[in-house]
Protein backbone atom coordinates (compact mmCIF):
# COMPACT_ATOMS: atom_id res chain seq x y z
CA UNK A 1 0.00 0.00 0.00
CA UNK A 2 1.06 3.59 -0.54
CA UNK A 3 1.91 4.77 2.94
CA UNK A 4 3.19 8.29 3.36
CA UNK A 5 6.16 8.58 5.69
CA UNK A 6 7.57 11.90 6.88
CA UNK A 7 10.84 11.24 8.59
CA UNK A 8 12.67 13.75 10.77
CA UNK A 9 11.91 16.71 8.54
CA UNK A 10 13.39 20.09 9.46
CA UNK A 11 13.20 23.30 7.53
CA UNK A 12 15.27 26.37 8.17
CA UNK A 13 14.58 29.42 6.03
CA UNK A 14 17.28 31.97 5.63
CA UNK A 15 15.97 35.47 5.12
CA UNK A 16 17.83 37.95 2.93
CA UNK A 17 19.12 39.65 6.08
CA UNK A 18 20.80 36.41 7.15
CA UNK A 19 18.29 35.65 9.87
CA UNK A 20 17.33 32.00 10.32
CA UNK A 21 13.70 30.96 10.70
CA UNK A 22 13.15 27.47 12.07
CA UNK A 23 9.90 26.75 10.27
CA UNK A 24 9.94 23.02 11.07
CA UNK A 25 11.94 21.03 13.57
CA UNK A 26 12.23 17.22 13.43
CA UNK A 27 8.72 16.48 12.26
CA UNK A 28 8.01 12.78 11.88
CA UNK A 29 4.79 10.89 11.22
CA UNK A 30 3.33 8.33 8.89
CA UNK A 31 -0.05 7.94 7.28
CA UNK A 32 -1.56 4.71 6.02
CA UNK A 33 -3.26 4.71 2.65
CA UNK A 34 -6.73 6.17 3.06
CA UNK A 35 -6.18 8.07 6.28
CA UNK A 36 -7.43 11.60 6.69
CA UNK A 37 -5.19 13.89 8.71
CA UNK A 38 -6.10 17.42 9.64
CA UNK A 39 -3.53 19.91 10.88
CA UNK A 40 -4.22 22.88 13.11
CA UNK A 41 -1.93 25.45 14.60
CA UNK A 42 -1.37 29.14 15.08
CA UNK A 43 -0.35 31.25 12.13
CA UNK A 44 3.28 30.82 11.14
CA UNK A 45 3.82 27.44 12.79
CA UNK A 46 4.92 25.84 9.53
CA UNK A 47 1.75 24.14 8.27
CA UNK A 48 2.06 25.36 4.71
CA UNK A 49 5.78 24.70 4.77
CA UNK A 50 5.14 21.07 5.75
CA UNK A 51 2.56 20.65 3.00
CA UNK A 52 4.84 22.21 0.41
CA UNK A 53 7.62 19.83 1.42
CA UNK A 54 5.32 16.83 1.05
CA UNK A 55 4.07 18.16 -2.28
CA UNK A 56 7.69 18.45 -3.36
CA UNK A 57 7.77 22.21 -3.96
CA UNK A 58 10.34 22.69 -1.19
CA UNK A 59 13.31 20.53 -0.28
CA UNK A 60 13.68 20.18 3.50
CA UNK A 61 16.98 21.14 5.07
CA UNK A 62 16.94 17.78 6.84
CA UNK A 63 14.91 14.59 6.67
CA UNK A 64 12.96 12.75 4.01
CA UNK A 65 9.44 12.20 2.73
CA UNK A 66 8.55 8.90 1.11
CA UNK A 67 5.46 7.47 -0.51
CA UNK A 68 5.10 3.70 -0.93
CA UNK A 69 8.68 3.30 0.32
CA UNK A 70 10.08 5.53 -2.44
CA UNK A 71 11.81 8.70 -1.38
CA UNK A 72 10.25 11.77 -2.95
CA UNK A 73 12.12 14.54 -4.72
CA UNK A 74 10.10 17.23 -6.42
CA UNK A 75 6.42 17.40 -7.30
CA UNK A 76 4.56 14.56 -8.97
CA UNK A 77 1.12 13.51 -10.03
CA UNK A 78 0.96 10.99 -7.17
CA UNK A 79 0.29 13.94 -4.86
CA UNK A 80 -2.54 16.29 -5.76
CA UNK A 81 -2.89 19.74 -4.33
CA UNK A 82 -5.99 21.81 -3.60
CA UNK A 83 -5.24 25.46 -2.90
CA UNK A 84 -7.29 28.04 -1.07
CA UNK A 85 -8.24 29.86 -4.26
CA UNK A 86 -6.99 31.21 -7.53
CA UNK A 87 -5.25 28.06 -8.72
CA UNK A 88 -7.80 27.22 -11.39
CA UNK A 89 -7.06 28.18 -14.99
CA UNK A 90 -9.40 31.03 -15.95
CA UNK A 91 -8.78 30.54 -19.66
CA UNK A 92 -10.34 27.08 -19.54
CA UNK A 93 -13.88 25.94 -18.95
CA UNK A 94 -14.85 23.89 -15.90
CA UNK A 95 -14.58 20.65 -17.89
CA UNK A 96 -11.22 21.62 -19.39
CA UNK A 97 -9.86 22.38 -15.93
CA UNK A 98 -10.92 18.97 -14.67
CA UNK A 99 -9.50 17.29 -17.77
CA UNK A 100 -6.11 19.02 -17.40
CA UNK A 101 -4.21 16.24 -15.59
CA UNK A 102 -5.27 13.33 -17.81
CA UNK A 103 -4.79 15.49 -20.89
CA UNK A 104 -1.18 16.26 -19.99
CA UNK A 105 -0.58 12.53 -19.69
CA UNK A 106 -2.08 11.88 -23.09
CA UNK A 107 -5.04 9.82 -21.89
CA UNK A 108 -7.44 8.92 -24.74
CA UNK A 109 -10.20 11.47 -25.21
CA UNK A 110 -13.09 9.09 -24.63
CA UNK A 111 -11.61 8.07 -21.32
CA UNK A 112 -11.07 11.70 -20.28
CA UNK A 113 -14.66 12.59 -21.19
CA UNK A 114 -15.98 9.73 -19.10
CA UNK A 115 -13.85 10.77 -16.10
CA UNK A 116 -14.85 14.42 -16.43
CA UNK A 117 -18.55 13.64 -16.69
CA UNK A 118 -18.39 11.34 -13.72
CA UNK A 119 -16.54 13.91 -11.62
CA UNK A 120 -18.82 16.76 -12.64
CA UNK A 121 -21.68 14.69 -11.32
CA UNK A 122 -19.82 13.72 -8.16
CA UNK A 123 -19.24 17.35 -7.20
CA UNK A 124 -22.69 18.39 -8.35
CA UNK A 125 -21.68 20.55 -11.31
CA UNK A 126 -23.10 18.48 -14.16
CA UNK A 127 -24.69 21.55 -15.78
CA UNK A 128 -21.57 23.71 -15.52
CA UNK A 129 -19.06 21.80 -17.65
CA UNK A 130 -19.02 24.41 -20.42
CA UNK A 131 -19.00 27.42 -18.12
CA UNK A 132 -15.89 29.56 -17.74
CA UNK A 133 -14.33 29.54 -14.27
CA UNK A 134 -14.98 33.20 -13.53
CA UNK A 135 -18.72 32.71 -13.76
CA UNK A 136 -18.70 30.32 -10.80
CA UNK A 137 -19.13 31.13 -7.12
CA UNK A 138 -16.27 30.53 -4.68
CA UNK A 139 -17.81 27.29 -3.42
CA UNK A 140 -18.32 25.98 -6.94
CA UNK A 141 -14.74 26.87 -7.83
CA UNK A 142 -13.43 24.83 -4.93
CA UNK A 143 -15.53 21.90 -6.09
CA UNK A 144 -13.89 22.21 -9.49
CA UNK A 145 -10.49 22.29 -7.79
CA UNK A 146 -11.37 19.07 -5.94
CA UNK A 147 -12.60 17.41 -9.12
CA UNK A 148 -9.50 18.51 -11.05
CA UNK A 149 -7.33 16.96 -8.39
CA UNK A 150 -9.35 13.71 -8.35
CA UNK A 151 -9.32 13.42 -12.15
CA UNK A 152 -5.62 12.79 -11.90
CA UNK A 153 -6.16 9.93 -9.45
CA UNK A 154 -3.36 10.82 -7.00
CA UNK A 155 -2.52 8.65 -3.98
CA UNK A 156 -2.40 11.61 -1.64
CA UNK A 157 -4.45 14.80 -1.67
CA UNK A 158 -2.93 17.84 0.03
CA UNK A 159 -5.22 20.70 0.93
CA UNK A 160 -4.03 24.05 2.28
CA UNK A 161 -7.05 25.81 3.80
CA UNK A 162 -9.22 24.72 0.87
CA UNK A 163 -12.42 26.04 2.41
CA UNK A 164 -10.90 29.09 4.08
CA UNK A 165 -12.44 31.62 1.69
CA UNK A 166 -15.99 30.24 1.83
CA UNK A 167 -18.97 31.38 3.86
CA UNK A 168 -20.05 29.25 6.82
CA UNK A 169 -22.94 27.47 5.12
CA UNK A 170 -21.10 26.65 1.90
CA UNK A 171 -18.22 25.52 4.03
CA UNK A 172 -20.33 22.97 5.91
CA UNK A 173 -21.69 21.58 2.66
CA UNK A 174 -18.16 21.31 1.31
CA UNK A 175 -17.02 19.48 4.43
CA UNK A 176 -19.65 16.81 3.81
CA UNK A 177 -18.50 16.60 0.19
CA UNK A 178 -14.89 16.12 1.26
CA UNK A 179 -15.96 13.34 3.61
CA UNK A 180 -18.00 11.67 0.90
CA UNK A 181 -15.18 11.84 -1.63
CA UNK A 182 -12.69 10.60 0.93
CA UNK A 183 -14.84 7.55 1.64
CA UNK A 184 -15.61 6.85 -2.01
CA UNK A 185 -12.08 7.18 -3.30
CA UNK A 186 -10.04 5.90 -0.37
CA UNK A 187 -7.45 8.63 -0.86
CA UNK A 188 -4.98 9.66 1.79
CA UNK A 189 -5.81 13.28 2.63
CA UNK A 190 -3.91 15.95 4.55
CA UNK A 191 -6.00 18.99 5.29
CA UNK A 192 -4.75 22.22 6.81
CA UNK A 193 -7.38 24.43 8.36
CA UNK A 194 -7.79 27.27 10.81
CA UNK A 195 -11.19 26.02 11.92
CA UNK A 196 -10.96 23.71 14.93
CA UNK A 197 -14.45 22.45 14.21
CA UNK A 198 -13.52 21.54 10.65
CA UNK A 199 -10.34 19.80 11.73
CA UNK A 200 -12.26 17.73 14.29
CA UNK A 201 -15.13 16.92 12.01
CA UNK A 202 -13.01 15.82 9.04
CA UNK A 203 -9.87 14.40 10.60
CA UNK A 204 -9.40 10.78 11.55
CA UNK A 205 -6.14 12.00 12.91
CA UNK A 206 -5.46 15.53 14.04
CA UNK A 207 -2.15 17.23 14.71
CA UNK A 208 -1.90 20.44 16.65
CA UNK A 209 1.31 22.19 15.69
CA UNK A 210 3.29 24.68 17.74
CA UNK A 211 5.55 27.45 16.41
CA UNK A 212 9.20 28.44 16.93
CA UNK A 213 10.34 25.94 15.96
CA UNK A 214 7.39 24.43 14.10
CA UNK A 215 6.64 20.99 15.52
CA UNK A 216 3.78 18.61 16.26
CA UNK A 217 2.63 19.48 19.76
CA UNK A 218 -0.20 17.01 20.18
CA UNK A 219 -1.74 14.19 18.17
CA UNK A 220 -5.35 13.00 18.34
CA UNK A 221 -7.18 10.03 16.91
CA UNK A 222 -10.80 11.00 16.30
CA UNK A 223 -14.06 9.13 15.73
CA UNK A 224 -16.04 11.97 14.13
CA UNK A 225 -15.05 11.59 10.49
CA UNK A 226 -16.40 8.04 10.31
CA UNK A 227 -19.57 9.08 12.11
CA UNK A 228 -19.96 12.03 9.76
CA UNK A 229 -20.53 9.65 6.86
CA UNK A 230 -23.77 8.38 8.29
CA UNK A 231 -24.93 10.83 10.92
CA UNK A 232 -26.15 14.38 10.69
CA UNK A 233 -23.09 16.70 10.82
CA UNK A 234 -24.93 19.21 13.02
CA UNK A 235 -25.61 16.55 15.62
CA UNK A 236 -22.02 15.38 15.65
CA UNK A 237 -20.76 18.91 16.09
CA UNK A 238 -23.15 19.38 19.00
CA UNK A 239 -22.23 16.14 20.78
CA UNK A 240 -20.54 16.46 24.21
CA UNK A 241 -17.43 14.57 23.07
CA UNK A 242 -16.96 16.87 20.12
CA UNK A 243 -17.41 20.00 22.19
CA UNK A 244 -15.04 18.79 24.90
CA UNK A 245 -12.22 18.08 22.46
CA UNK A 246 -12.92 21.33 20.63
CA UNK A 247 -12.60 23.39 23.79
CA UNK A 248 -9.41 21.56 24.78
CA UNK A 249 -7.78 22.30 21.44
CA UNK A 250 -9.06 25.86 21.35
CA UNK A 251 -7.53 26.69 24.71
CA UNK A 252 -4.27 25.03 23.65
CA UNK A 253 -4.10 27.21 20.54
CA UNK A 254 -5.13 30.28 22.52
CA UNK A 255 -2.28 29.68 24.92
CA UNK A 256 0.18 29.42 22.07
CA UNK A 257 -1.18 32.53 20.41
CA UNK A 258 -0.89 34.42 23.68
CA UNK A 259 2.68 33.24 24.06
CA UNK A 260 3.45 34.49 20.55
CA UNK A 261 1.80 37.83 21.30
CA UNK A 262 3.68 38.08 24.58
CA UNK A 263 6.96 37.33 22.85
CA UNK A 264 6.21 39.88 20.19
CA UNK A 265 5.28 42.47 22.81
CA UNK A 266 8.44 41.99 24.87
CA UNK A 267 10.40 41.72 21.64
CA UNK A 268 9.32 45.16 20.50
CA UNK A 269 9.32 46.60 24.01
CA UNK A 270 12.82 45.46 24.89
Amino acid sequence: MSDLVVNDVSMVFETPTGEQVHALHDVSFSLKQGELLSILGPSGCGKSTLLNIIAGFLAPTKGTVSLASTELHGPGSDRGMVFQQGALFEWMTVAENIAFGPQMKGTPKAEIDATVNHLLETVGLQDFGDKPIYELSGGMQQRVALARCLANDPDVILMDEPLGALDALTREKMQSLVLKLWKETGKTIILITHSVEEALFLGEKLFVMAPRPGRIKKQYSLPFADAGLTQNPREIKASPDFIKTREEILSMIWEMEEEIMGLAATGTGG
Binding site: A55, G56, F57, P75, G76, S77, R79, G80, M81, F83, G86, A87, L88, F89, F100, G101, M104, K105, R148, C149, N152, P154
Partner: peptide
Protein backbone atom coordinates in the same frame (compact mmCIF):
# COMPACT_ATOMS: atom_id res chain seq x y z
CA UNK B 1 1.39 34.11 -13.13
CA UNK B 2 0.33 33.01 -9.67
CA UNK B 3 2.70 30.51 -8.12
CA UNK B 4 -0.21 28.33 -7.02
CA UNK B 5 -1.21 27.86 -10.67
CA UNK B 6 2.27 26.67 -11.54
CA UNK B 7 2.35 24.39 -8.50
CA UNK B 8 -1.06 22.99 -9.35
CA UNK B 9 0.07 22.23 -12.89
CA UNK B 10 3.19 20.42 -11.68
CA UNK B 11 1.10 18.39 -9.25
CA UNK B 12 -1.21 17.44 -12.10
CA UNK B 13 1.76 15.95 -13.89
CA UNK B 14 2.44 18.66 -16.47
CA UNK B 15 5.93 18.94 -17.94
CA UNK B 16 7.79 22.24 -18.24
CA UNK B 17 6.86 22.51 -21.88
CA UNK B 18 3.22 21.88 -21.11
CA UNK B 19 3.27 24.43 -18.31
CA UNK B 20 4.74 26.99 -20.68
CA UNK B 21 2.12 26.33 -23.32
CA UNK B 22 -0.99 25.71 -21.24
CA UNK B 23 -0.40 27.90 -18.19
Amino acid sequence: VKLSKIHAAYSLGATRKQILYYV
